[in-house]
Design a protein around this nucleic acid. Sequence first.
DNA 1: ACACGTGTTCTATGAGTTGTAGAACAGACC
DNA 2: GGTCTGTTCTACAACTCATAGAACACGTGT
Lengths: 125, 125
Amino acid sequence: MILDVDLTSEVPIYQQIHDRVVEAIAAGELADGDPLPSTRQLAVDLGINFHTVNKAYDQLRREGLLLITRKSGAVVQRVSTAGFAAEWQARLKTLLAEAIAHGLGEREVLGHCETTLRAFEEVRA
Amino acid sequence: MILDVDLTSEVPIYQQIHDRVVEAIAAGELADGDPLPSTRQLAVDLGINFHTVNKAYDQLRREGLLLITRKSGAVVQRVSTAGFAAEWQARLKTLLAEAIAHGLGEREVLGHCETTLRAFEEVRA
DNA sequence: ACACGTGTTCTATGAGTTGTAGAACAGACC
DNA sequence: GGTCTGTTCTACAACTCATAGAACACGTGT
């Protein structure tokens, strides 16, 4: 688990932690059952407050990607989440619209999607 | 220009206005030279403050999608913006990772991308 | 010239978010 | 018992979001 966050970024730290974990899960670097560092430990490693890490973990838990117990700590545990697809597709539409509006071609955009997905696939294989 | 925003959404109003305009440009409903309503007029139509509309328009202008002058008001004007592609691809990676992490298959995700892009293409044709 | 609509800029306020901070409690492990 | 951990509470400074009012500059139409 190499989790690099940019403390100077305009993106909130807890959001960056969340995104990096999600990307690690998608890439297969983190599979069901794999443990994450404790909130206090990761906070020390990143040089931030443990409440910030807690917020990121709690968000992942609410999304059904993490199981957190006093016993096992935080472990990856993917459970089905209703209503995710619809909300996700709305965000996809906005993101793709931005690319098209800025002049990228449909084929070019689709190529980026394919390349990004293939990167996840390759790491997992 | 039918611009529907959800005042009860957790997404900021100015962001929704921004996103709807971007989507309209991508779909070809708004082309270069097309005017947008004045900030005060759109604010009245949506039942919000004109400063909020101003913020959305200013964001679109900074992104190189809008030209705003005292003379012509706000008109769609797409100009090249350096550094957009890199930042956009990072957001694409995060969004696609979320889908994969939640259990959607690569082929399924790519299908959603293709469908969304085709929707833009069809409206424009 | 005049009024009007518009973009632009300033201050200000209240509510909410972000990140940090300290403290306390409960369960698990050695 | 001591330590590490998750969990929960309060608190604070800085920032964002949305609203609000005021003022100024510019263009248009009468």
